[in-house]
Amino acid sequence: MKTTRSPTPATGSRLAALRENRWFTLVWIIPLAILVLAGVVLAARGIRSLPDVQAFLGEYPGTTTLPESAPVGFPAWLNWQHGLNAFFILFVIRSGWQIRTTKRPTMFWKRNNTGLLRTRKPSTRMSLNVWLHITFDTLWVANGVLFYILLFATGQWLRLVPVTWDIFPNALSAMLQYASLDWPVESGWVNYNAVQTISYFLVVFVAAPLALATGLRMSPAWTSRRLSRVFPIGLARAVHFPVMIFFVAFIVVHVILVFATGALRNLNHMYAARNDDGWLGFWIFAGALVLMILAWFAARPVVLRAIASLTGTVSR
């Protein structure tokens, strides 16, 4: 007669630790999400089969007409801007999450109040995570300012700013096409579909300025009491975190659609300034991805401490 072995103490402790893990309670979300997505696809396909909906899709195919002065294609500077933005925003989000989840920082940075950096005010002491966040915020903002200048100087803004009310019914049409897994027929080289236009507009002209404004309010360098009454720090915190979630959600959906709707052509648009199905854009993207992964693992406390020490004093 066979007997079943009871779990060893080590196994039992591992299972108990797994159950107590806060992420374990979220496991059920995965099958639920699969069921919800399957239901959405089936519902969208059923709705698309209705005669009135087919007529609506015929009248609003998902794209709007751009002004004749709108440029065609993506210049090389836009590819560089996109690559740098991806690199900077990765560490902006990472360091921001570390600030939010680290209860007791172990290392702190303080600016050296000497030379050109000498001021009458005492230097502010901040955690190393805050220093990293502000550093990449500064790089991200500098890249963004240059992006705005080139965007309006070259007319590329016409591709991002809705210029007609037809954008909304076309966006509804495009969302229905996405939901049914029958992708909108469009060429991003010439014109974005309505959903892309609205989402890119929100990222560039709404979410990014909100992230900057609320980030400045939460910065240790903010000392104005008068402006603090107008813009309370509680309001900044209430907006800043949801904006980060929006960026994360946008990036996830953006990456999925890039690979699901013609990966090689899309990567050529984004990284090689070309409108073909060659592999150049893919290899540039792969190189950029490797660089981001290496930087991610290199950003350890010992490395960050050495870099931060170049501009200030790091202490425990």
Rank of each mutant, 00 (worst) to 15 (best):
R118S: 06
R94T: 13
P105V: 07
R94Q: 11
W97T: 11
R120L: 15
P105Q: 04
L116K: 14
L117F: 12
R118E: 06
F88S: 01
R118Y: 08
W97N: 06
G96N: 05
N113V: 05
L116Q: 09
Q98G: 05
M126D: 01
N112L: 09
I89T: 09
K110Q: 09
T106C: 01
T106E: 12
F108Y: 13
T124L: 13
I99F: 07
R120P: 10
I93D: 06
W109A: 00
R104Y: 10
N113S: 04
S123R: 05
F88N: 05
T101Q: 12
N113E: 03
F88M: 06
G96F: 06
F108L: 01
P122K: 09
P105G: 04
I93R: 00
M126G: 00
R100K: 13
G96Y: 07
K121Y: 12
R120N: 15
L116P: 03
R111H: 02
N113R: 04
K110T: 07
S123I: 05
M107E: 14
T119N: 11
F91E: 06
T106G: 05
V92T: 03
N112E: 10
P105K: 04
I93Y: 03
T114M: 10
R118F: 10
R111I: 10
T101R: 13
S95R: 00
N113K: 02
V92P: 02
M107N: 07
I99S: 05
R125K: 14
K103D: 13
P122L: 08
T102C: 06
T106S: 09
